[in-house]
Write a protein that binds this DNA or RNA. Structure first.
Lengths: 245, 245
DNA sequence: ACAAAAGTGTTTTTTATACACCCATGC
DNA sequence: GCATGGGTGTATAAAAAACACTTTTGT
């Protein structure tokens, strides 16, 4: 930041003091049940005691914002494979009731992060009796603070990301069928986002999915080929506009 | 933010204290000379005294982040028409030399904003002898703090925004020729981003530019029609994926 | 044999790209 | 007249969208 040309704040305009927190919007897709889920935690203290909220934390000394996001995530769930990026920073005055309205107390800034995690391996951790649970996106309750707004913002980002970046493959198993990819897309973007056979053709033409030749049977029907995400083949496509829709 | 399940920070992990600043990446296009410009200010105090930097400020009591971004912008230039949005939040420990390394002093968080302003009406303000100047993007010097990184991030955002949202029309005059739009795109995205006649056809097919019928001559050649951005016709296209490239 | 799931191909429509060409003005 | 920039049209290629069809399995 540059603080010139005024090194000292004007007495009539004192600087705000901030507490900085990180809030995570953590999504996961339960492919078995075609459900898009968000992780929420139940608050134990005021304000908003007993309300559900996004998992969040305050940033510690020497800790980067992204480290804090990873820390809060790993306190709530145990997961190996995930995608995480910064979402947006919410810092309007009055967004936290602990800000004393008349006395201009500390402001509460929230740097939000967006994550997509692999559902099958995600293990919920119940620390100190705090409740942690997956919620279907259609059944999100009233959340603490401005967390409904943050979550909606994250949901938008999720849909956008899915269309032009390969985050799906961060969260699929190492070997997957093309139908599993399609189901994942359907669950997040809604049915009818695209015809399966066209989706399939488009995806394969991009050239970074390699057929292992291994076949798997899911009950009746022809066995499907297992594919693998080929990071090397994808590398040259990085930063190029992709379309998966 | 949710601060459960630990209401008090662990003594071995004290919370960081933050100063929160806003830094603006302000772009403008000098259409007369086909130049893409960024606004920089010269720092007067340490750290980085006499270095160029992004225009920034600390957030005041009762002031929203976006208000702070608008304030710093209006302290440096006088401009009516602009587009502004939040860019990214940079908060790594050690990004500001004023953070005492051993003693874990205050952290300096920077919430960056991205702006595009109308060049013709932008009037530079020289307050308290502080220097403010436009720099061609190819000639950006070494900046204070991590501001080169922030500026590059803003430049990426600018190019992306231009392709799928109508920010160009926030910054063009009320009445403009299609060639002026094309020039603006060329200056930001580089020559050869698209054939002019195809660009033109695509743009008109979107249906939110209305021909006023007024003709204007720029020296030799056939006079061009002046167009106007029709906000009403654009409204239904909001939130829909547009392609201008 | 038949249903179910996987995978291929075909047809139609739309969009992108690269141009060629006509139009209106200043000099 | 002709250079200059504005504007239209066309021909080709590529991509998106819809959907019919074949293949391979379980029962």
């Amino acid at each position: 930041m540059s603080y010139n040309p005024q090194p000292q704040p004007h007495p009539k305009h004192p600087l705000a003091e901030f507490k900085v927190g990180v809030d995570n919007v953590i999504f996961s897709v339960d492919t078995a049940n075609n459900r898009l889920l968000a992780l929420l935690v139940k608050r134990l203290q005021d304000p908003f005691a007993n309300s559900w909220s996004l998992p969040g934390t305050l940033v510690r000394e020497g800790e980067s914002l992204e480290d804090a996001a990873h820390r809060i995530l790993s306190e709530k769930i145990k997961v190996e494979n995930l995608y995480l990026e910064q979402l947006y920073t919410f810092g309007n005055p009055g967004r936290d009731p602990r800000e004393a309205k008349e006395s201009f107390g500390d402001r509460y800034l929230s740097v939000s992060y967006f994550a997509l995690v692999r559902f099958e391996e995600a293990e919920l951790l119940f620390n100190q009796g705090g409740m942690t649970a997956w919620f279907m996106l259609q059944k999100i309750p009233q959340l603490a603070f401005d967390h409904n707004k943050i979550l909606n913002y994250g949901y938008q980002r999720l849909r956008n990301k899915l269309e032009y970046s390969p985050i799906a493959f961060d969260v699929l198993p190492d070997l997957f069928t093309l139908n599993e990819v399609y189901q994942l897309y359907c669950t997040i973007l809604g049915e009818n986002f695209s015809d399966y056979s066209n989706f399939r053709t488009r995806l394969l033409k991009l050239g970074f999915l390699s057929d292992t030749g291994i076949k798997v049977s899911r009950g009746a029907g022809r066995p499907a080929s297992l594919y693998r995400f080929d990071a090397e083949a994808f590398a040259p496509l990085k930063n190029k506009p992709l379309v998966f829709i």
